[in-house]
Structure formats: structure tokens, C-alpha cells
Design a protein around this nucleic acid. Structure first.
Length: 115
DNA sequence: CTCTTGACGAAAC
DNA sequence: TGTTTCGCCAAGA
């Protein structure tokens, strides 16, 4: 390993955290970003940069509402993968972060994103 | 090098 | 309640 120290890629840290998400659980971009100390947007951007077939369980990462923010068929795939792990989606298409969230669900409001 | 966009999130309007 | 703006960091044009 050479290029690390002063220039450790932020993505590497993001992937490392996501890889620690246990099966049947989901995490959010904001949560991961917060534990990394960077912007939530970068987490999502890192996922978009993930190569197909990577060891990172990117499908366990959803947005702060517990919903999928991924456009296209990739988002559909994510939902199918989560359901295959035992994750249930509400009628609104969201996951209960209080129950399946990781490391700790941080639910802000149970109603429709009413802040 | 500058400007825009993005698999986000929160606040302002 | 939905739309718009700003912040975050990185990549593409």
C-alpha cells in the first residue's frame, strides 16, 4: 500500500463502513456520512461509483426516510435484495429504520417527512 | 482551471 | 405539502 496516509480516499472509508452492515439491516447515507465526518452526498456518490459485483452491500444503504433514492432498475434491484434478506417495506415503500436501521435507527418523525 | 450535476439532508419559503 | 437553496465532496464536460 502506498497511496494512503495523506490521501486516503474517502470512498474507501465509506465502503468499509457499509461492508459492516449486518444482513437484514439497513443504514442511511446520512448516518454513514456522519460517522465518517463528511457530507451525505458523498456517500451516495461513492455508491454510484461502485463497480458491479463489488463486495460492498450497497443495497443495504437507503436514504434517511428508509426509502430507495436510486433511479432506474438498480433501485428495484435494491428493494428485491433487501426483501430477500427479510427486510419488509411499508406500503409507502419505506423500511422501518427503528427496527431495521443500523447501527442505530435515528427516526425523526414517523409521519411523512414532516419536519 | 471553472461550472454543473449528483444513489443526500436539512432548512427556508 | 411541495419547491428551492445551501452545504458537503467528487467527477465529468
Amino acid at each position: 500500500m502506498k497511496q494512503m496516509s495523506d490521501g486516503v480516499r474517502l470512498y474507501s472509508r465509506i465502503y468499509a463502513v457499509i461492508r459492516r452492515i449486518p444482513k437484514g439491516r439497513v443504514s442511511t447515507y446520512g448516518t454513514v456520512a456522519e460517522m465518517l465526518g463528511c457530507g451525505a452526498r458523498q456517500v451516495g456518490y461513492a455508491m454510484a461509483a461502485l463497480p458491479d459485483g463489488s463486495a460492498v452491500p450497497w443495497h443495504r444503504v437507503v436514504n434517511f426516510r428508509g426509502g430507495i433514492s436510486i433511479p432506474g432498475g438498480t433501485g428495484i434491484t435494491q428493494r428485491l435484495k433487501l426483501e430477500a434478506e427479510g427486510v419488509r417495506f411499508s406500503q409507502r415503500g419505506t423500511v422501518d429504520l427503528s427496527a431495521r436501521g443500523w447501527p442505530r435507527a435515528r427516526k425523526k418523525s414517523r409521519k411523512k417527512a414532516h419536519r
